[in-house]
Design a protein around this nucleic acid. Structure first.
Lengths: 230, 230
DNA sequence: GACTCAATTATGTCTATACATAAAGTTATT
DNA sequence: AATAACTTTATGTATAGACATAATTGAGTC
């Protein structure tokens, strides 16, 4: 026999695609499959677990394993580090700090992050350039107690985007994409007409202890696309 | 002792967050960690493998395991089934077929999917409604040999979106998001002014054998957002 | 029928052991 | 020096066996 878990993974996926194992029906249990494939139960387990993580199967103790009704495929997006995104296109990366201040955060934003009134917050606006052309405009609020050292960081050398990834790894957060018309400021900085449809990304990240780290709004230059792999 | 792989997973993540294990440095090997935690190497392996899959660690045979320099966090998007997205908001789902024809596919699109000239293709335009209000406008091209039975499917009952998920599960594809101004047709159907910034999703899916299944362009009503979890 | 409690069962996980494999390091050969 | 061949090493994977755990099933009771 000599089966590897990847062989079993492949064969199981084939049966799902060919509807030999139909959606919403139970498949044989691990012990039976192990016997059929001539391998140990652990090997079958490894293969089926991978399929469950990918959304093809649903598994529950005692209840058994069934093919997902509508396979909840998950698209994956590698979180964009702007420098890498630009350099991957073979373009030259650069950034320009437009403003940096310890200003007061508007209440609605503060509430969204669950920050108290007196939480020390710094705001940084940055323009990112690809081959000298505007690529994205970033408006970032950083909660200073979650990112010690940020206040004195030399952001002209290391962009805020990179500084934070390297110094304040976060554990979870959300990413929202929407479309928005360019305001006067965005139009001026990105070099487009006011009202142009721009892809807008809003991202909030939290550190280990559920305390907010940053809130970022990024407007991309016109015609930008985000690609997710399925 | 009595460690489970989840305990080790948690402890390793703590060391990464606390920089006890610094970015871009090697961590002890599995055998040593197994001894430290008082468990078997397989258990350590399970924990470290999970961390590697999540992007925190990079592992290579013989070279060992190192903490990722810039943890490539991956955001996950549960692929949107429009009905579920609308009903999850507590709104009533409905759809209206606007047009359906076996028209010829423009060459640029056909080339993008790698389809031959005479490949049988059907085009369906659908408007999706939430509580009677326009929610999204879908323009879909379906490669008929990849979706047998689609031609005769009663799309008034089951929306194209759902029909295809249930009858032609795909194995991989891409998802592109961008911002686009509403054209006259989109404006009319979605009930907004021409030129309004709309979030636009373009999705191509492929079946098991690399042959294209569908190409979908969806314009969402104004102010729509897509949320990804990190 | 409605409820409680125990028996059953499929998945989840841990262990010890073994061998496979990739890649780095070392030595021998040209 | 460059190259080839061997050794070493850390991860990758397979196995049999055991026990843990969640959830269904069914028996017994009210």
């Amino acid at each position: 026999m000599a089966q590897s878990w990847q062989d079993i993974h492949k064969e199981a996926l084939r049966r799902i695609h060919s509807r030999e194992w139909a959606p919403d029906t139970l498949i044989p249990n691990e012990a039976d499959l192990a016997e059929e494939f001539g391998c140990s139960r652990a090997t079958v387990n490894r293969a089926l677990r991978a399929l469950a993580e990918a959304g093809w199967l649903e598994r529950r103790r005692k209840a058994g394993t069934r093919v997902a009704r509508a396979p909840q495929r998950r698209a994956q997006l590698a979180i964009p580090l702007l420098r890498e995104e630009i350099e991957a296109r073979g373009q030259r990366f650069a950034h320009r700090i437009l403003s940096r201040s310890r200003s007061k955060m508007p209440s609605p934003l503060r509430a969204a992050l669950g920050l108290s009134d007196d939480a020390p917050v710094e705001r940084v606006q940055t323009l990112y350039l690809a081959d000298g052309h505007p690529f994205a405009l970033e408006d970032r609020w950083v909660h200073l107690s979650a990112a010690p050292g940020f206040e004195t960081a030399e952001l002209e050398k290391t962009s805020p985007n990179e500084w934070l990834v390297q110094h304040a790894p976060f554990s979870h957060g959300t990413l929202d994409y929407s479309a928005a018309p360019a305001g006067d400021f965005e139009a001026e900085q990105l070099g487009c007409a006011p009202g142009t449809a721009l892809l807008c990304m809003q991202r909030s990240t939290f550190g280990p202890g559920d305390h907010a780290a940053t809130l970022v709004t990024t407007h991309f230059a016109p015609n930008h696309r985000v690609r997710l792999e399925i």
